[in-house]
C-alpha cells in the first residue's frame, strides 16, 4: 500500500513536470517566435474558457450550453444505436435465418466511414436534428453490431447444454446464458461506439449546424479566432475523456464477474 502510494506520487510528479514543460514551451513559443502570430498562449485560452462559461459563443449559447446541445444529440443517437445494434447483433449471432438475411446487407454498410453519411443525411433529412441523429446512429450502430455479433457467435454451446440439463427452457437459457456471455462484447462495442459517436457529432456539427460544440470550432475558424478553437478542442477532449471514464465504470460494475484477484 505504501509502495503504491509512493509510486503514484512519483508518477504524478513526472506528469506535472511533463505538463508544465509543455505549457512553458507553448507560452515561450507564442511569445518569442512567429508561432505567436497563429496561436494564443495557454493563459489566454484558459481566460477565454472561463469567460465563455457565462458569456455566449455566437448568438446566445454559452460553452456548457453548446456542450449540452452536442451531448443531447449523442445521447439520443447513441441510445438508439445501442438498442438496435444489440438486438440485431444478437439476432444475427443466434439465428441463422436472420444472419443469412441481414449479414450481406450489413456488410454493405459496415465499411463506410460514418462521416461519409453526412452529405446523404443532409440531402435526406435537411439540416435539422434528424440528420444529426441519423449520422450519430450510423456511427454507433456499426460498431455495436460488429461486437455484439461476435459475442453472440462465441456463446459456448456447452454452457447452453448445462442450462438445459439444469431444467432451463429456451427463453431462460437465452436470458441466463446468451445475454450474460455477450455483455463484455456488447460493452466493447459500446465503448468504441460512444467515442465514434462523439467524433461523428463533431463532424456533423462542423459541416452544418448553428449550435453545438463542433460548431464553435468551425465558427472560430471562420472568424480566424484561434483562441475559440482551442477552447472548443479542450472542452471536446475533456467531455470525450469523461464519456470514456463513464463507460469504463459501467463496464466494471456490470462485468464484475470477469475480474480476477481480490
Amino acid at each position: 500500500m505504501k509502495i503504491k502510494l509512493k509510486e503514484m506520487g512519483n508518477s504524478l510528479f513526472f506528469s506535472l513536470i511533463g505538463i508544465a514543460a509543455i505549457l512553458i514551451l507553448w507560452t515561450l513559443g507564442v511569445k518569442f517566435t512567429s508561432v505567436g502570430l497563429l496561436l494564443p498562449t495557454p493563459l489566454e485560452v484558459l481566460q477565454r474558457m472561463a469567460y465563455t462559461f457565462s458569456n455566449a459563443i455566437g448568438r446566445e449559447l454559452t460553452l456548457p450550453m453548446h456542450l449540452a446541445v452536442s451531448l443531447r444529440r449523442v445521447v439520443i443517437g447513441f441510445s438508439l444505436a445501442s438498442v438496435c445494434g444489440v438486438v440485431l447483433g444478437i439476432a444475427m449471432g443466434r439465428f441463422r435465418m436472420v444472419e443469412a438475411v441481414c449479414k450481406p446487407l450489413f456488410e454493405l454498410v459496415r465499411p463506410i466511414p460514418s462521416v461519409a453519411w453526412i452529405p446523404l443525411a443532409i440531402v435526406w433529412f435537411g439540416i435539422g436534428e434528424t440528420a444529426k441523429t441519423f449520422i450519430i446512429f450510423m456511427a454507433g450502430f456499426v460498431n455495436i453490431v460488429v461486437n455484439t455479433y461476435a459475442g453472440a457467435k462465441q456463446v459456448d454451446e456447452n454452457m447452453l447444454g448445462v442450462a438445459y440439463m439444469l431444467g432451463a427452457n429456451e427463453i431462460q437459457a437465452f436470458f441466463h446464458v446468451v445475454i450474460p456471455s455477450c455483455v463484455p462484447y456488447i460493452f466493447a462495442g459500446m465503448q468504441v461506439g460512444l467515442s465514434t459517436c462523439w467524433m461523428a457529432v463533431l463532424a456533423a456539427e462542423m459541416v452544418s449546424s448553428t449550435e453545438g460544440i463542433g460548431w464553435t470550432i468551425t465558427a472560430g475558424q471562420e472568424n480566424g479566432d484561434m483562441t475559440q478553437i482551442f477552447v472548443g478542442i479542450i472542452a471536446i477532449a475533456v467531455v470525450g475523456l469523461l464519456l470514456a471514464v463513464l463507460m469504463r465504470w459501467a463496464e466494471r460494475v456490470l462485468c464484475r464477474w470477469r475480474v480476477r484477484g481480490k
Binding site: G18, I19, V115, W198, A203, I236, A237, G240
Partner: peptide, 18 residues
C-alpha cells in the same frame, strides 16, 4: 506519457479547423 495523455482524448476531427 503525460504529453501523450493530454493529446489522446482529442478527436482528430476537432483539429481540422486548426
Amino acid at each position: 506519457r503525460p504529453v501523450f495523455d493530454l493529446l489522446k482524448p482529442i478527436p482528430p476531427i476537432a483539429l481540422i479547423p486548426v
